[in-house]
Amino acid sequence: MSATPPPTHPHEAAGKLVLLRHGETEWSKSGQHTGRTDLPLTEHGEVLARAAGKLLTGYNFALQLASPLQRAQRTAQLAGLSPQTEEDLLEWDYGGYEGRTTKEIRAELGYAWSVFRDGVVPGQTPGETVEEVAARASRVLARVIPALADGDVALVGHGHALRILTTVFLRQEVRMAAQLLLDAGSVSVLQFEREQPAVRTWNRLPSLPTD
């Protein structure tokens, strides 16, 4: 499936789309799938978020959006942003695989399961398909791409959802997101170059204090 963002006028979109993944949580540290579970940042996650703010200097944000979950909201705050809340930036709903690691899921299923290829099963929440996450990403892009005519846009969110949003922006098959690694606390920058969606910077990690 190729996901194409809604029609826009990229020749007018001079701004940059800045993606900030939230800082570390206990589950991101352990590799547990963290969808709708509302975990706080670890102490190291807060350090990452503050440091990531230094990578945002020099941008002229016309719009700032963040997932409603506390790990994204706190990251935005520590990075010096004041975003509006955007429900469509929520992380993938992993359903019955929430809180479980890939290793655990593969041991249960007996094959090399991949969330991007094989999806999830219902649990305490219904779960989402990759296409449903991509549809949410398309709605986010429909809102933010016009704002790029007025300046830069910051999106603060989650690893898998931001990776899928990037494939939608690039007009690529959404499962390509499996090949886009995105670390906690990282900053990535997308933009239009001669009317074509492009990646300027990917998965840039901030420099951390040494003391």
Rank of each mutant, 00 (worst) to 15 (best):
M1S: 15
S2E: 12
P5G: 10
P10Q: 12
P10V: 08
P10A: 14
E12A: 08
A13W: 05
A14S: 11
A14V: 13
G15K: 05
G15E: 10
L19E: 05
R21V: 04
G23V: 04
T25W: 00
W27H: 02
S28M: 08
K29Y: 15
K29F: 15
S30R: 12
G35L: 05
R36W: 04
D38C: 10
L39Y: 05
T42D: 06
T42R: 04
T42S: 09
E43M: 10
E43T: 11
H44E: 13
G45A: 15
L48Q: 07
R50E: 14
R50I: 09
A51N: 07
A52C: 10
A52G: 11
L55C: 09
L55N: 06
L55W: 07
L56Q: 01
L56C: 05
L56N: 02
T57W: 10
G58A: 14
N60W: 11
L63Y: 06
Q64K: 08
Q64G: 07
L65A: 03
L65C: 04
L65V: 02
A66Q: 00
S67E: 06
P68C: 04
P68I: 01
Q73N: 07
A76S: 12
Q77G: 09
L78F: 09
L81D: 00
S82G: 14
T85C: 12
E87C: 14
D88Y: 09
L89V: 08
L90S: 12
E91T: 02
E91H: 01
W92D: 01
D93R: 01
Y94I: 02
G95Q: 06
R100Q: 15
K103R: 15
E104K: 11
E104I: 06
A107P: 11
E108Q: 15
G110K: 08
Y111V: 12
W113T: 08
S114I: 07
V115D: 04
F116N: 03
F116Y: 14
D118I: 04
V120M: 04
V120E: 03
P122D: 08
G123R: 03
Q124L: 12
T125L: 07
P126S: 11
V133I: 08
V133H: 01
A134E: 01
R136L: 05
A137N: 06
S138F: 13
S138K: 15
R143Q: 13
V144A: 00
A147C: 13
L155I: 05
H158L: 02
H160W: 03
L162N: 02
L162S: 00
T166S: 09
T166C: 06
T167M: 09
L170A: 09
L170Q: 09
R171N: 14
Q172V: 15
Q172W: 13
E173W: 10
E173A: 14
E173G: 10
V174Y: 05
V174Q: 00
V174A: 06
R175L: 14
M176I: 10
A177F: 07
A177S: 10
Q179S: 11
D183H: 12
G185A: 15
G185T: 06
S186C: 12
V187F: 12
S188Y: 03
V189R: 05
V189E: 03
Q196E: 15
P197Y: 07
T201F: 09
N203V: 03
L205D: 08
L205I: 12
T210K: 13
